[in-house]
Design a protein around this nucleic acid. Structure first.
Lengths: 205, 205
DNA sequence: CGGGGCGAACAGACCGGTCTGCCTCGGAGT
DNA sequence: ACTCCGAGGCAGACCGGTCTGTTCGCCCCG
């Protein structure tokens, strides 16, 4: 799994796949597009293999089950979306750690207005499969990684109780994503304002 | 399936069904339980009819399709959960409108700790079916009704820009529900704290 | 010549939805 | 008071389609 070495954010893992045309890469790239936009249950294995131009036997040679592919998709999503698009872009947009934190919601604002905005795959999979399902548990794990990034920035900014801070911050992130799914593209601004208050109350006295 | 006629909130629609044993009521009661806990796609028509002790012909005499039943379920959920459990209970717990608003997150706190906590069906259905699907659109409508309750309370409390207030408030509600689904039962407290800041900034100067 | 990919058929389960019987119960007609 | 009939509920077979996953045969390329 190569790294996105190009400049600028992208939602598609195309750059990550650049130069590779192996069946396993085609499958993963297709899975990323389809799972992101239509969910897990909404995409069947037959559609996956047709769209990626791969035979079923080849598919099952590389992935023992559909769930295994979903797991790989979540891993890829963590890299492409969480790390590169959200955290990476936010760190680029701000100079201080506090600015970078707030920039998360600027990135959200751009993201919410995209045609292909498809909400957060980790939340989607968690709610679709349930917290008890292995895929739900994996999603919870990736969500906690997001919180880890926020906590790291909070520590850089020297904020009080960074773990608690990150949990509250994450509430704002997730809530604004749901609101954006409902159609409120300004949800990022509302969340950002509440985020400012949260920062103020976590600054060392 | 006995009836919970005791005082206090209940998540089951048993009280609404009290004294009735018609097939249509049994179907709806079963649908409420199964759809709430396992989602729409996770429950098939065959299981619905078996669990409610109804024949398939009877089922389709009362509901032209599964989607029609889901629509009826969402309507029931709005009454039982939104109106009775959340808004009704919050209004009971507070004296002033501001107290009643904040009490929403106290009710959430109790709700998050329930064994049968199953998140918000409207969010679940919205993400499961997509915002373009009729059921997704219906869910968006019911979510906006929740926001309407919040806005009404904000107006009673004399807060500034009640519509904007309600949208921000709703972000906190939805975000805390997702966090609770991940296992953070204290999410209600974190959201409540941010909600207090939100109230302060919407009070007339 | 052999491994990997392809296309396709196939299996078994389940999906939403239709339809055919059988039974019961209640009300109307004589 | 007795009969008759139809509405509505129950049970379950059945339909075409889709789901995940398996397997077989062919071909191409190293």
């Amino acid at each position: 799994m190569t790294v996105d070495d190009a400049a600028g954010p992208t939602l598609l893992p195309a750059t990550a796949m650049a130069g590779r045309d192996e069946p396993v890469d085609r499958i993963l790239a297709t899975a990323y597009e389809l799972f992101s936009s239509r969910g897990i249950r909404g995409v069947g294995v037959n559609e996956l293999i047709n769209s990626s131009g791969v035979s079923k036997a080849t598919f099952y040679r590389h992935f023992p089950s559909k769930d295994a592919l979903v797991l790989a998709f979540l891993e890829l999503r963590d890299q492409v979306w969480t790390v590169d698009l959200i955290v990476g872009e936010a760190r680029k947009r701000g100079t201080t750690a506090e600015e970078q934190l707030l920039a998360v919601f600027d990135v959200f604002g751009d993201w919410f207005q995209r045609e292909d905005f498809e909400a957060c795959s980790f939340i989607n999979v968690l709610l679709e499969m349930g917290a008890g399902h292995p895929l739900g548990k994996a999603s919870i794990d990736y969500l906690s990684r997001i919180r880890g990034h926020v906590q790291a920035l909070a520590e850089e900014a020297g904020l009080d109780r960074p773990e608690e801070f990150a949990r509250s911050w994450h509430i704002l992130m997730k809530g604004s994503i749901i609101s954006a799914t409902e159609g409120d593209t300004l949800a990022s601004k509302r969340a950002q304002q509440m985020a400012r208050w949260l920062i103020e109350h976590h600054r060392g006295l």
